[in-house]
Design a protein around this nucleic acid. Structure first.
Length: 807
DNA sequence: ATGGTCAAGCTTTTT
DNA sequence: GCTTGACCAT
């Protein structure tokens, strides 16, 4: 948000920080008191307000940088905030803690882990790691016969941990007569034991154990309570109970009686440790309309009941929007007003109505994707940069069709989230080596690398090692060193000892050597990359490249963190989020889920798959508060757009490889019809490729199969809502061969070898029919033809793979 | 121990 | 339409 002022033109002191702010924003920057809640609607300039508030505290010498703790939702947001505070106050910003809940907790835990049976080299289990651990446990306990799956168990454990429950407290309330519950307790216990014996925390532990640490060791808590004088929390509506408890602990008055003789953060004794201090001041920023993480334990009550929780809290409301046009805001307001249990709040702007929202209904997901690709081309031609365009969807599975069409149209794009770099198998393998070196207690990492690359150590051998470890109460790693006592074959024994020796040897240098050197040593000694390159599997070549890429990442890390240790590197990589690697300015369209989109903004936004069962998602229908949360998600998506918003859906959508009829989302009717300009409405799409709007006497209850929410008085989309008749027709059509949908775009791809085209050539395209090439750009496999089709309009095609022929 | 084939189940959203 | 797990042949 660069609208407010240019920091390069400072006037003086506080007044400079208030320049360009509206009255509510000024209050939010200037208010001083124990607790402040800033209710910040979408696009209301909250980051500006937060950074100026921090800058104000620093400039007026009310706080040292080290006394400020600012918590954001993603590392990206943290980096941005740090940068913007720096712009305002320069080097005076050094020493602040600006980080996510998770990073802040890791920092605290690394310092204090030894208080409660962990070492500072603990590893962090990401969801995949903890699932792998649970999988072993469920198998060992035969818990699947009780109906437990990895995801059900992990979900339940996560929920409990977010409520600050542990095995003991859960056991106290458990009903042991219920065998299922007894079994769950077993799983929970084994899981907890597995983590602590591996010297590891899972994501939820990072928060929960920090709270436990503060509660069990008041003298530790007092240290942090005394240090942090100003705590600021962004996205407060998405905090869960554990995070709330953490904030509560940090904002208690420090017990100075516990601090005499304590050492501070620089290792020296504290200056006047017994000086009485007020509790830290707390500022939270949030918007309950943007709460979209209830499924992860976020508790909207944290923000709703803030005033009750922190007595004397001041509340400031920011409603003026500086991001979007009025049409976009009106749509957003109309949608969100259907959530009944909210404080009414209406976003407004002074920038004017802007363009109408564009609606489009494709015949299939590929048709929908093609529309988006065509519009992206048009936008780009009218001067919108690719980087200012984003495509949102509800589920990651929706990326496929979009990617296919983007590739065929030779549009530059990137997918945020989804299968992340660090989730790739080969990367996890290599990380496993690093973890095994850094934290020898962790058996999960060891199991992962034991036979990667293949060295003849199979499941039977691994089980023998494990049972030896169990018997002699040693770690798996220690058992490996004694492999010669197990009576295994000479070949296997040799392989185990060799691996153990490599790990031991590299571990000697791990505390001091640069991470890149540690990694290279491991890769060389294990011949990891050679093994991949020697493989017959063509994908292994790409995997080898990914591993090389990781080596580059470690070098980059060392450049940015000259003092960084292996542990630091592992911490950083386990806490990277989808939105974090977003910043680069390369000109690409961004594809992401609606969840990932939170906190971001784009000139043009495509919100795709606006269909029943997708948005709201089928899975949310049964959950209490599900449809309302999905509506907030839709709202978040809409409010990301600055000037152009596109809503699109498809008449049919393939899931699990099967084609199903899709119906318009109930949320579409909640947008006043005059705000949407339908290029192809659901009604038009239903009349089989015709271009005339079709008047249908809609049976309203049939629309989207949704209950007529909000009375449903005037929700006709411009062509009339498709009623039961149309839906029946759609169902009928879907049962027939797909060829009947003549204007549907398929995902056909072919290899055209070295077909070349030049302007003036006539071609026939499988989906678009005949057309004339108007321009050709790029070269080799990347050459792109711009083709004017007779009926389908103008398209960009990647020549090598398009289903075309010269005529 | 490994590598292949086949059926089953699967997809909400993420620090 | 893709990944995972079970099973079997080497």
């Amino acid at each position: 948000m660069t609208f407010i002022l240019d920091p390069a033109q400072p006037s003086s002191g506080q007044s400079r920080l208030l320049e360009g702010l509206n009255p509510a924003q000024r209050v939010a920057v200037e208010y001083r008191g124990p607790a402040l809640l800033i209710v910040a609607g979408a696009g209301s300039g909250k980051t500006s307000v937060l950074t100026r508030r921090i800058a104000g505290l620093l400039e007026s010498s009310e706080a040292w940088p080290s006394q400020i703790l600012a918590i954001t939702f993603t590392n990206k947001a943290a980096a941005e905030m740090r940068e913007r505070v720096q712009e305002l106050v320069g080097r005076g910003a050094e020493g602040m803690w600006i980080s996510t809940f998770h990073s802040a907790c890791v920092r605290i835990l690394r310092r204090e882990a030894e208080h409660f049976g962990f070492t500072k080299k603990f590893t962090i289990y990401d969801s995949a790691d903890s699932r792998a651990l649970l999988k072993r446990i469920i198998k060992e306990l035969n818990a699947d016969t009780f109906g437990f799956t990895v995801s059900s168990a992990s979900g339940r454990i996560s929920k409990l941990k977010n409520e600050l429950q542990d095995v003991e407290s859960y056991a106290r309330g458990a009903n042991f007569n219920d065998p299922t519950e007894a079994m769950f307790l077993e799983i929970f216990r084994a899981y907890t034991r597995g983590l602590s014996s591996a010297n590891a925390f899972d994501f939820d532990d990072l928060i929960g154990q920090t709270v436990y640490l503060f509660r069990a060791f008041p003298q530790v808590a007092a240290l942090y309570q005394r240090r942090f004088r100003h705590i600021l929390v962004d996205e407060y509506q998405d905090t869960n109970h554990a995070q709330y408890a953490l904030i509560r602990e940090l904002t208690r008055a420090p017990r100075t009686d516990l601090l005499a003789g304590a050492t501070g953060f620089d290792g020296r004794e504290l200056r006047d440790p017994t000086r009485e201090l007020e509790p830290a001041s707390l500022t939270v920023v949030g918007d309950s309309d943007q709460s979209i993480y209830a499924f992860r334990g976020a508790d909207i009550r944290n923000i709703v009941e803030f005033e009750r929780d922190f007595s004397g809290a001041k509340v400031v409301l920011l409603e003026q929007n500086y991001r979007s046009t009025q049409n976009i805001l009106s749509a957003a307001n109309a949608v969100i007003s259907n959530n009944f249990d909210r404080k009414d709040k209406k976003l407004f702007t002074t920038v004017g109505d802007g363009e109408k929202i564009v609606g489009f209904t494709g015949y299939s997901q590929h048709d929908e994707a093609q529309f988006i690709a065509d519009e992206v081309v048009t936008l780009h031609e009218t001067g919108v940069q690719y980087r200012d365009i984003a495509v949102f969807y509800r589920t990651n599975a929706q990326t496929r069709a979009l990617e296919e069409v983007f590739i065929r149209s030779a549009l530059p794009y990137r997918v945020l989230g989804g299968t992340k770099f660090y989730e790739r198998a080969e990367i996890k393998d290599v990380m496993g080596y690093l973890i095994a070196v850094a934290n020898p207690a962790d058996p999960m990492a060891l199991r992962r690398i034991m036979n990667t690359p293949k060295r003849g150590i199979g499941p039977a051998t691994e089980a023998a090692l494990q049972s030896h470890a169990d018997k002699s109460e040693k770690t798996l790693r220690e058992a490996m060193r004694e492999a010669d006592q197990l009576g295994l074959g000479p070949k296997v024994t040799g392989a185990i000892l060799r691996l153990g020796a490599i790990l031991d040897e590299v571990a000697l240098t791990a505390d001091t050597a640069p991470v890149a050197d540690v990694l290279t040593a491991l890769l060389t000694k294990t011949k990891f990359v050679e093994a991949l390159r020697a493989s017959r599997d063509p994908q292994d070549e790409a995997r080898a490249e990914n591993v090389e890429e990781l080596v580059a990442v470690t070098k980059e890390f060392q450049k940015n963190n000259p003092e960084g240790t292996l542990i630091d590197f592992l911490t950083e990589t386990s806490l990277v989020a989808a939105a974090d690697d977003l910043d680069d300015s390369s000109g690409t369209v961004s594809l992401m889920t609606l969840h990932t989109a939170k906190g971001l903004e784009y000139e043009a936004v495509f919100l795709t798959g606006v269909e029943e069962d997708l948005l709201p998602h089928r899975m949310s229908a049964g959950e209490p508060g599900g449809p309302a949360e999905e509506r907030r998600l839709f709202y978040v998506g809409i409010t990301r757009a600055r000037r152009r918003l596109y809503l699109s859906l498809a008449m049919t959508r393939a899931q699990f490889g099967e084609v199903n009829v899709a119906m318009p989302s109930r949320y579409l009717q909640e947008i006043p019809a005059d705000l949407i300009d339908w290029r192809q409405s659901p009604g038009m799409a239903n009349s089989r490729g015709g271009t005339q709007p079709r008047a249908i006497n809609a049976n309203r209850a049939g629309f989207g199969a949704a209950p007529a929410l909000g009375g449903g008085s005037d929700y006709s989309l411009d062509a009339g809502a498709p009623g039961a008749t149309a839906l029946a027709r759609a169902a009928h059509n879907a049962a027939r061969p797909k060829t009947e949908w003549t204007s549907g775009v398929t995902n056909t791809v072919r290899d055209n070898g070295d077909l070349t085209l030049k302007p003036g050539d006539r071609i026939r395209h499988l989906d678009f029919g005949e057309g004339r090439v108007s321009a050709v750009s790029g070269s080799g496999t990347k050459s792109i033809a711009e083709v004017q089709f007779e009926t389908a309009g103008r398209k960009r095609l990647l020549i090598k793979i398009s289903p075309i022929e010269k005529i």
